[in-house]
Design a protein around this nucleic acid. Structure first.
Lengths: 230, 230
DNA sequence: TAATTTTATTTGTAATACAAAATTAATTTT
DNA sequence: AAAATTAATTTTGTATTACAAATAAAATTA
């Protein structure tokens, strides 16, 4: 199950790395597709696929007849390409830092704007989480993510939604890693569930400030739990 | 200067729209590349380019021999593809909402962690902004962005950095639109400059809370200015 | 019925060719 | 000689055809 990688993926990763390392500094011209193809020993096809990924990520831009150039403000990395390893505590810390910034505000906005349908969606997610928590085996990470996701959706801010969505894959993996070895969790399950219920209640009552506070509390407790790991 | 669009771009936009509209719901299988090619009346090449963009954005996933499927949690849109039109006030509002959430926290973190080099970078950007402001003609949008960007970089959080970078193109355009017709700005220039200096000073003194407050003040004033437009 | 093999489908890559845009070199004009 | 125009070259964008490799569907066999 070695998940064989596509050639174009390998190449886009390689090229991105070269750009990050400074082999192709911002503003510089990349080699032509033919040259890259020769260099990597492949045809133009996977080269073009790789370049199109970098283009979509805003790392390079190409002009027909001109060539491909590294963008002046090349995004530092493709979020989809971040791989969290078990020992990769830095990424998890940074991710949690962003959660502490985004989620309380999202809860605030959700309390302001949520539609009845969105409230229903949150309640469904919470019920799912409750079911998962009664089962000793399950961790409920998916339900957890779905709950937080439903709150984000209720903010009605497409940019906020996009940011969280682009983080979700990363978030999911980070959550699994942090929850997996955590035996303390079982004792904290009821407390965690209560925290989720409190957030939802505040959103239901349309109390933005309260929702924000409940979210802060939840994240603070989650962080305590997290700090035991590191 | 009509900026002719590539076929693959047109198609990726079309496909994305179809997905958003529900023509291809999450989890469903897309038509084969051959079918798509026939449908759009092009060869497989631009189809593959379009699909690779959607793949990079996490909207779809493909398996050799299997086909392409819409991801269960397809990102709602590609940030790079958002076009802000002059009458597109909604996007600008949402963008500003995100700035209010992210930037004060970024200033906080920057005050905590900035290296001397990063402080230097911020000061350079501020000087640039001062020069631009003395010139009646120039608006200083680029310098403005560079200043805020230098603060973000000093947070040392790669996820934060990535988020802002991915927003920067959008931000730049929004800023130009909001500043362009604003004649009041000239009177507010000194005030705005002072606000920037205050933020930098707090970061220089390594006073996180103060930096956050100064950032909030700055954004509050900017929002007042903005509210005149809408 | 269940497991295995075969067949067909579909994406991934290759090679070649040409169109279209941009860059560079050459030419002409002033 | 300098500037403008034109021509030639380079380079990306798209098309066509072909085949490899992985998956999914169908047929076969136990």
């Amino acid at each position: 199950m070695a998940e064989k990688e596509k050639i174009s993926q390998t190449i886009s990763r390689e090229l991105l790395n070269m750009i990050e390392v400074g082999k192709f500094p911002p503003g510089s011209k990349l080699p032509t597709e033919m040259e890259l193809a020769a260099h990597f020993g492949v045809s133009r096809i996977p080269i073009r696929e790789a370049l199109s990924v970098l283009r979509a990520a805003g790392v390079i831009s190409s002009r027909q007849g001109g060539g491909s150039y590294v963008e002046e403000r090349a995004a530092t990395f493709l979020l989809h390409q971040i791989r969290i390893e078990n020992d990769d505590k830095e990424v998890i810390k940074h991710l949690f830092e962003m959660r502490k910034i985004l989620e309380p505000e999202a809860a605030y906005l959700a309390a302001l704007r949520r539609t009845p349908e969105q409230l229903e969606q949150m309640e469904q997610a919470l019920k799912w989480l409750e079911r998962e928590f009664t089962d000793e085996e399950k961790m409920g990470t998916e339900a957890d993510i779905e709950f937080h996701r439903s709150i984000i959706l209720a903010t009605q801010n497409p940019i906020m939604i996009h940011m969280i969505e682009s983080l979700s894959a990363l978030y999911e993996r980070a959550l699994k890693i942090t929850l997996e070895p955590n035996l303390v969790l079982k004792q904290r399950r009821k407390a965690a569930l209560k925290e989720h219920q409190d957030i939802l209640l505040a959103i239901k009552m349309e109390e933005p400030e309260l929702a924000k506070i409940q979210s802060v509390i939840h994240l603070k407790n989650a962080e305590k739990k997290l700090s035991l790991l590191f």
